[in-house]
Simulated scan of single mutants.
Amino acid sequence: MLGAQARECEQILPLRGDEDVVRLRRQVRDSMVAMGFGLIEQTKIITAASELARNTLRYGGGGEARIARISDGARQGLELRFIDAGPGIADIALALTDGYTSGGGLGLGLGGARRLADAFHIDTAPGAGTTVIIAKWKLF
């Protein structure tokens, strides 16, 4: 996954509709503000979270997002997990390619989220759903 880290304060939010994406964005912002992240870092992760939440809805048929504070030595951060039980992704490399889309979008979701986060992991298989994990780190 993303390495050995201590996890705490996990929150689980359902992703069933657009209002859940708005709720998730607000919760991610509040968590990042509470941890002392600057506006640029907040904007990057909120954007990535929005893209991944919309992918969870559009391609996975809905699911959940998990928000947790993580720590690893002198670093503390925020980890976001997006979990669905949808059809999975047959070709991860292709799905991460800018411009690729299987649903008529701009094709920037997964690759863009990967660039905006400090850590990115995807676990998927055809017929087995998808879990995408991103993290943003801060030295304290």
Rank of each mutant, 00 (worst) to 15 (best):
T130A: 05
V33W: 10
F82W: 05
L116Y: 06
Q42L: 13
R23M: 04
T43H: 15
D118I: 00
G111C: 06
D72E: 15
M32A: 06
D72R: 15
Y59G: 03
G107T: 09
A68W: 02
A90S: 13
A34M: 08
I122T: 03
P126F: 02
Q42E: 14
V28W: 07
R58A: 12
I83M: 02
G107V: 14
T97Y: 04
T56N: 09
G112P: 05
A93I: 01
P126G: 04
A4V: 14
A4Q: 12
A4P: 05
M32R: 06
S31T: 13
E64N: 04
E19V: 08
E64C: 08
G99P: 05
K138S: 15
L116C: 09
V21F: 05
I67N: 02
G3W: 07
L94W: 09
G38N: 14
L80M: 08
I89N: 00
T47V: 13
H121Y: 09
R23S: 07
G63I: 08
I89Y: 00
G99M: 09
A128H: 12
M1L: 14
E19R: 11
K138L: 15
E64I: 03
G73K: 10
Q27L: 14
F82I: 07
D91P: 04
G36K: 06
I46F: 03
G127C: 08
F120P: 05
K44H: 13
T130P: 01
G3D: 08
G60M: 06
A95M: 05
I122E: 04
T47S: 15
L108H: 02
Y100N: 09
